[in-house]
Design a protein around this nucleic acid. Structure first.
Lengths: 225, 225
DNA sequence: TTCAAAATGTACTGAATGGTTAATTTGTCA
DNA sequence: TGACAAATTAACCATTCAGTACATTTTGAA
């Protein structure tokens, strides 16, 4: 999240140290901002290069072309989010508590990663053609489904979850609300005001989402007001 | 929905009839497809012109520039959807039934208007800057909120709705679910398969949405399985 | 030291593309 | 019918921008 301290963007003429990894990371960092802001067709290679410590040539050296760079950015943010999900330990919580935690954690994770949301939205405009062609991403989605499967199984075994509770459907539901909350903030606010996007409104939506999710699978769930 | 029968795209050299309205409508129709497919920066004026019966110059004649055209497209689809919502008569249904109808109708409307969804998604990438500057759109959103307000009021009066039932929050919830269902279909399917987007899956999500919405406001709601 | 490979910079190009100029056709009405 | 406005076309222009050719510097190993 926090941008690493960087040498100032003086074009290093004459004497510089080779540092491929730092260069690649720097390019990716800037490219992520650019593509998240302007999209794939709207993002400018020259603009990215200018905000980098290195020259435009390096983008092509390391990423081949614009689409290659975009694809790398996509894999990058995707992996970062999934890894953050990975760290959530819900194994020893009661099923309902575990589900509540997964839900609110997703809400928070999406809300604090608008660039990720924007990039996924952009990728959907492109019919996910780059995501589909990426073998990296395919493997990253097991984790969240596995967690929800475990929670559902335990909940059903304990008799507290309804029989129809389904991990994929749950993930879809949670993701839908959390995603929309960020992705459509601009148009929703423009149309209806920002009552739901001010701090208070977000807290309300967060609780409401938790109640909706738990209410849909936990037998006899009552919101803790 | 169905594209009106059009004269073939022969460039009309020599003898043509003046028909400004038809020309404008034709341009808008093509531009809508183009922008929905490629976005604002990705959409090509030349490509639009080529699929039109008229010459590129006409786009600038009637819409000033690319952004003007985009904005007109946006207003156009927005108005169309809101008008279709307008025709929904729910005034004389029981509150719960009315809410169920509004919910499933929205699900269907979004699902059958992917171009609208894509354009809104694109507009969100642009932080709704064109929507914000459009005075047309502002007035179009009263209707749906008014309807939900009426339903909520009647439900609470009848004692069947919970006290916290809130029109704006309801609209947000319904919209989130229905929007995500279309907007993120590509990436979700790429990640998790299309179990939820095949015909059966969509029917399941549709019922699930209805149950979630009703369950969150109707006291003692039980899904009619 | 030398030398090849890796890493980086500079300057350029060609195609794509948004937008314009200037002329032509069509409609209208005095 | 003729003149003027509205609608429309074809050809052109200027710029932006992804991508490249080629030169230069750094590094590490022999």
């Amino acid at each position: 999240m926090s941008t690493p301290p960087k040498e100032p963007n003086t074009l290093r003429k004459g004497n510089w140290k080779q540092d491929p990894d730092a260069v690649k990371a720097d390019i990716l960092r800037v490219a992520k901002e650019e593509f998240a802001t302007y999209g794939l067709s709207g993002g400018r290679i020259d603009a990215i290069a200018k905000r980098t410590t290195v020259s435009k040539r390096m983008i092509y050296y390391y990423f081949e072309n614009k689409e290659g760079l975009y694809k790398s950015v996509l894999e990058n943010v995707y992996a970062a989010l999934r890894e953050s999900e990975e760290t959530l330990m819900v194994g020893d919580l009661e099923p309902a508590d575990a589900l509540a935690l997964l839900t609110t954690a997703t809400f928070d994770a999406y809300a604090s990663n608008p660039e990720f949301i924007r990039l996924i939205a952009i990728e959907n405009i492109h019919n996910a053609e780059y995501l589909t062609r990426s073998d990296v991403v395919q493997t990253l989605n097991r984790a969240i489904i596995d967690k929800l499967t475990d929670v559902c199984d335990r909940g059903k075994a304990a008799g507290t979850f309804r029989a129809h509770a389904d991990p994929l459907e749950l993930h879809w539901t949670i993701s839908a609300f959390c995603f929309y909350n960020v992705s459509n903030r601009a148009t929703f606010s423009a149309s209806f005001g920002d009552a739901l996007h001010c701090e208070q409104g977000q807290a309300r939506l967060r609780r409401r989402l938790r109640d909706i999710v738990l209410g849909s699978v936990v037998i006899g769930y009552e919101p803790p007001d």
